[in-house]
Amino acid sequence: MTMTAAAIHEDMGTRIEEALRRRFVHHSAAAEAYGSEFAALWRAAADHSLGGKLVRPRLLLDIHHALTPGDVGSATLTPAAVEVAAHIELLHYAFLLHDDVIDGDLTRRKRPNLIGALAAGTPAATEEDALHWARSSAILMGDLLLTAAVMGFARADVPADVRSRLLDLVEETIVETVAGEHTDVALSHGIIAPDLTTILSMSVYKTATYSFSLPLRAAALLSGSSVSAERTLTSVGRHIGLAYQLQDDLLCVFGDHRAHGKDAFSDLREGKETAIIAYARSTDAWDDIAPRFGSAELSMRDAEGLRDQLRACGAEAFVTDLVGDQLDAVHTLLADAQLTGEIGADAAHTILSTVSRLEGRRA
């Protein structure tokens, strides 16, 4: 029986959600043995992690489907692929929890995140006590989800050699993501110099590795693709991920916050070191920009003034061109991979569909 592409995509989302719910139900039930508060933490984590866009697990299953031999239009999702995809989403949520603690955030997408919700619902003596409880809980839940993700890879119903390579992949992913986050914090406190090369490397490690290279490489491993195909998909994921992060930076400064949902000019208030700022530092405009960059009291009017200066000095155009370079590199890599037979037309088309959604992205 064949299925349309839309039906297959919908089935993917349903199966990922079901796998995630099973994981949370299992962990919540097991947590009861350690007290009601601990079980409640698992249930709260489930409430905040379920119902997302599932970008990373969907990418894995889309590519796995495209790489796996079978009849056109047939659903070739294996239980192992669905489980690995679900555990990639758990890894994502673990990173988000730790990121919210590091950044001191209480909201995500204009609603309370896990920390904000726990702090608001905690009958602590003081607000400080409530925040400490909530942030501590987020750190611990992030640790638990990180462990659950790794164990999910380890328990995947795949041949031993594939499991070993999956574990190497998830270890490499965690190390690179943590290294990227560590560099990001160092940049924000002026511990290391904010040069363009360092900022771009940080973006690849912090965002591209786990958001794009991980699901693409996992799909290749699970479908039995060649080592050369996996290597190509690693590079493709890095270029897509860097383009995605650079677009995020552009949206925060130059985009419409009503469309993208991020706090307007938050990067400018926080003094976030991005490729936009790295370029601006190299121009004569920096002397005028520097005094207001990183001011928590930055007014909307001043922020709009900074935006206009960043645009006038060429920073917006420079980073927009960087995004274009990354997407061009993806097209070139996939064209070459099809010529050599490393990656088939279906997989290349699926990846390019993802790239097309990035082009002209507003949110």
Rank of each mutant, 00 (worst) to 15 (best):
D288C: 08
D263R: 02
A275Q: 06
E304C: 08
F318W: 05
W286P: 06
A317K: 11
A312M: 04
G344N: 15
Y279S: 01
G261V: 00
D308T: 13
Q247M: 09
S228I: 10
K272W: 10
H260W: 04
R307W: 02
S235Q: 13
F265G: 10
L246E: 08
S223N: 13
E297S: 15
D302L: 09
A329S: 15
L233Y: 11
V236A: 09
S228G: 04
G271H: 04
S225G: 11
D328Y: 03
D321Q: 15
G294E: 08
E273M: 15
S226K: 14
E316V: 00
E316H: 12
L246S: 08
L306R: 10
G241C: 10
E230Q: 14
L298K: 01
L310F: 14
Q309N: 03
I289Y: 09
A229M: 07
E273C: 08
E270V: 00
L222R: 09
D325Q: 15
Y244R: 06
R292C: 05
I276F: 07
C252T: 12
F318L: 12
L306K: 11
G324Y: 06
A219D: 06
D321F: 07
R292H: 14
E304Y: 03
S223D: 13
E304N: 14
R301F: 00
T232C: 14
A259L: 06
T232V: 15
L306N: 14
R301Y: 00
S225I: 01
T232E: 05
H260Y: 11
S282N: 03
R301M: 00
C313R: 12
A303C: 06
R307M: 10
R311M: 05
A243S: 07
I289C: 10
K272S: 07
S225W: 01
A315F: 13
L298H: 04
L327H: 02
S235N: 11
T283K: 08
Q326C: 13
A329R: 14
S266Q: 15
Y279E: 06
L222A: 04
I277W: 08
G271V: 08
D328H: 14
Q247F: 01
H331K: 11
D346L: 10
I240D: 01
A280P: 08
A229C: 10
G294P: 08
G294L: 06
G241E: 09
S266P: 09
Q309T: 11
A296T: 07
V253M: 00
S225M: 04
A280G: 04
L298Q: 04
G341E: 07
T340W: 01
G305C: 01
